[in-house]
Design a protein around this nucleic acid. Structure first.
Lengths: 235, 235
DNA sequence: TCCTGTGAATTCGTTCACAGCC
DNA sequence: GGCTGTGAACGAATTCACAGGA
């Protein structure tokens, strides 16, 4: 019985499982154990089983999960059986990279429009998608039923863009600008922030160096049981 | 007293606080309350106080935190008072975007080298940084003491690149390729994955639509107390 | 009075361990 | 015998709530 309200932590792992499952399917595997799916996803098998149990009882005891069937169920749960229209705002280096590399926009997503303020860019197309003026944002979002906005503008402009997206009716935002956006309740917001990721890595890098120094400099003090946490993979 | 071993969840928020603090400093503020820092960081004040308390007692009761002093302490804790050499592997659209936009690489980081397999790119420079052949990877990593590798190659090549980085002595990897990398213990790994973020947004978008349908279609059944979770901001 | 710092309470997430089914 | 599904135990993270110093 699918117990409704899947925990947030599980939701963030479902896309990882999905990708691993698609890889397995392409390699011709028909069934997969929680153990195998776990190692392909970089987690442990108990987590996989718990996560999948929130969707329903889709496995077979003694056998494992049917790969195709599980792909279907996970896709459905993630809402990938329908198509989501997205738009990208800001065509600097990053926005262009996102617009160009269609591979990022996997099954289930479609880039309906690109927006920029630069008059030299507006009117052209990138990768077959038209580049429109920011003035058309609200109209196009409504006309094309765009539900997800990808913000790739400089920090200073990001909150304005977010406000306009929300006003236009968008309720999911993916923010690449290095700034904390404020959005009203009911709007989903996720962010991708390179410099934050680098800073987190720097923290652990520094800690590893400190531990190493301690270990080398102190044959005399007992430090064998020094508490380590070497992994901290994100998911 | 700084209680050693800051929780991982707190570590991921420190860079966000740091950015907010720098903004406050630029605006001329000298002190900040946990409440103000919280709202600038998109979290609540109890969390800010707990997180900062892991670094030490740097606030003043009845007053708040000294902005400059706190910037210094957080920077030190994150290891940003030293310079970390990084390299980017793969100069496709995304790798180029990362290499071009120096703003991503904030204080504390330096792009020491770029790598690609394309002979037409090797030998040139991007944004003043030389583009080198993959054959030189191990040598340059050692010579330049590069400690963080940024992987921006296609999925199929990412694990190979990761293995080579690890062999060369790198112990922190930031992965942009949409694939789960396996790294040995002691190597820190973080990933940035656009399509996973989009899929997570799609999940909540679908959930919102379902809730809306339920609310509209059922004036007769009691659903006022339907359990909502409209935010799920990442940090 | 104001705001920090922190134990205590609570909620959330993970892991264990095994019953149940193939 | 093997592997799922899941309560129960555990651990981590968040929030509460207030004592205590400026």
């Amino acid at each position: 019985m699918p117990s409704r309200q899947i925990p947030e932590a599980s939701v963030t792992r479902l896309p990882v499982y999905l990708r691993a499952l698609v890889d397995l399917a392409e390699r011709g595997d028909h069934t997969v154990s929680s153990e195998a799916l776990a190692s392909a996803s970089g987690v442990n098998s108990a987590k996989v089983r718990k996560d999948l149990s929130y969707l329903g009882s889709y496995g077979t005891r003694g056998v494992g999960y049917d790969v195709e069937y599980l792909i279907h169920q996970v896709s459905r749960e993630l809402g990938l059986t329908q198509d989501w229209a997205t738009c990208i705002i800001g065509l600097g280096n990053l926005g262009l990279a996102l617009a160009h590399y269609g591979g990022f926009f996997a099954r289930g997503f479609r880039v309906a429009a690109l927006f920029d303020i630069d008059p030299y860019k507006v009117g052209g197309t990138v990768n077959g998608t038209p580049v429109l003026d920011m003035d058309d944002l609200e109209r196009i979002v409504k006309e094309d039923s765009i539900s997800i906005g990808v913000i790739a503008v400089p920090s200073g402009a990001a909150q304005d863009v977010a406000d306009r997206l929300v006003t236009a009716g968008i309720s999911s935002i993916l923010n690449f600008a290095p700034v904390v956006l404020q959005v009203p309740p009911g709007v989903s917001l996720r962010k991708v922030d390179l410099s934050i990721e680098l800073q987190i890595l720097a923290f652990y890098e520094q800690r590893k160096l400190a531990e190493q120094a301690v270990r080398e400099g102190t044959a005399r003090t007992k430090l064998e049981s020094y508490d380590r946490d070497p992994e901290h993979h994100d998911a």
